[in-house]
């Protein structure tokens, strides 16, 4: 397998230039009234989808940006996200 990731700034590059940053779970929740379960869900819990997921990547050996892509975890290939068709 040879992962490639498409950085919005640098284009399609060798996957080892990047760091994976987790499933996309949305912005940090408001702290007021946050239960331990809800916080744990945000911080630690994953869906572990066997299929396409939206996820964060950091271009560590490149421009230094954080961005999201869609990737199929069963093939390790980037795919078009649902937004792409809109």
């Amino acid at each position: 397998m040879a992962l490639t990731i498409t950085c919005p700034i640098c284009g399609k590059r060798n996957g080892y230039e990047f760091r994976y940053g987790g499933e996309d779970k949305g912005p940090r929740p408001e702290e007021a009234g946050l239960t331990p379960e809800a916080w744990c869900d945000y911080v630690h819990m994953n869906k572990c989808v066997a299929g396409v997921q939206k996820e964060w990547w950091f271009h560590k050996d490149g421009c230094g940006s954080w961005f999201t892509i869609h990737r199929d975890t069963t093939t390790n290939l980037e795919v078009k996200g649902p937004e792409a068709d809109k």
Binding site: G26, W56, F58, K60
Partner: peptide, 12 residues
């Protein structure tokens, strides 16, 4: 460190 700062502010 840069990565850490940028990660925790990535939605903002």
């Amino acid at each position: 460190t840069v990565e850490w700062f940028r990660y925790h502010t990535r939605y903002d």
